[in-house]
Design a protein around this nucleic acid. Structure first.
Lengths: 190, 190
DNA sequence: GTAACTGTGTGACCTACATCACATTCAAAG
DNA sequence: CTTTGAATGTGATGTAGGTCACACAGTTAC
């Protein structure tokens, strides 16, 4: 399935666009190929775009003063990633995004998204829906953080996204769970 | 300022509605008065509405199997609260909402919100904007949870919402920070 | 081949915070 | 004014998980 078909199917799950509307929407997306390890957004960058994953796997992450990394999100195919705070507010990136594996993505810049949302009501509806999803997922993860210990969160993650286990180094899984890699190692070896 | 004016000012910060449009939108909101301690959404309820706070203070919270409470959000005037997962998905409430102080709120039911979003493009834009805000705030809080210790999170919260210190029992602040009330007590007495 | 680098396991120790127990303060109700 | 109960403070002790140190793969670079 090509980029266009993937995006079309993704949007069609939520709203109906005519073919002309979709073609118009799609014309605002730009395809990109990235290699494993390549950065898409780095701390301090001006953030203009968000990214829709076609193939591969991205991560969005924060690195603190002690150079410890925390992963906000793994982005698999048909997921979106960016530093949304920076994207919406126009501030510099504090969240970075890079590639865990070789990846194909489509970029959509903020101005174009807003333009499309303004021009096509259904597109605005789509993005409201998508952000809702993200919001609810984020709340759930927050609760899981408060409520559950590391083992529980690990099992939750593996149940939800078993594919991650093979694709993603365990260091990164630890950084997503908010534990040290040593602790994670001890968790599943017992 | 009456309910109508408060909501109008709140929406006007984001989108422009004509007076007729706003009157129409407002006609879908219902005013409610609640007493301190009164429940608005209880675990297991069918969730039909979200709530816009005019006066007072609500909390949305989760209670786990060991009857420990975790607070997702304090809702002050002009904030919104509900169990959004249940509201959007039609499932039963796992998140509860109740009143920390006597409160005045406006309710908007899910079907009406969707209807209004569909009928008036600007309203859909408003709700997309609002959910964006919530999403970004939730991500920030998640990061703070992973990155910072309890003292840091406490100071962050007090810097952001100093008003909470006077209004909200410290038990509840602890439940928001995700620490025991004993730990919180030790934190600010040193 | 070997070097260098990145990822992972494992032991020894340390710390932030939870839990339990009880004392105290404060506010509401009689 | 007294009683009751909720909210808060504080000590003693337990534990999940962090940190540091080092060993041992598995890859990539030469």
């Amino acid at each position: 399935m090509d980029a266009k078909a993937v995006l079309k199917a993704h949007i069609a799950k939520v709203v109906q666009l005519t073919d002309e509307q979709f073609d118009y929407v799609f014309s605002h997306f730009k395809p990109h190929s990235y290699k494993k390890g390549q950065a898409i957004i780095s701390e301090g960058d001006k953030v203009d775009c968000e990214y829709f994953v076609l193939e591969g796997c991205l991560k969005s992450f924060y690195i603190n003063d002690e150079v410890k990394m925390y992963i906000l999100q793994f982005a698999m195919p048909t997921w979106w990633a960016s530093d949304y705070n920076a994207l919406y507010s126009g501030s510099k990136a504090t969240i970075s995004v890079d590639c865990i594996t070789d990846s194909q993505v489509l970029s959509l810049c903020n101005a174009d998204r807003e333009k499309l949302c303004n021009e096509i009501h259904a597109v605005e509806h789509f993005f409201r829906w998508r952000t809702n999803k993200g919001y609810v997922a984020s709340q759930k993860r927050l609760l899981s953080f408060m409520n559950n210990d590391a083992r529980h969160r690990y099992e939750e993650l593996m149940a939800l996204y078993p594919a991650l286990y093979n694709i993603v180094p365990k260091q990164l899984i630890a950084a997503y769970l908010g534990v040290s890699r040593e602790t994670l190692s001890r968790l599943y070896n017992s």
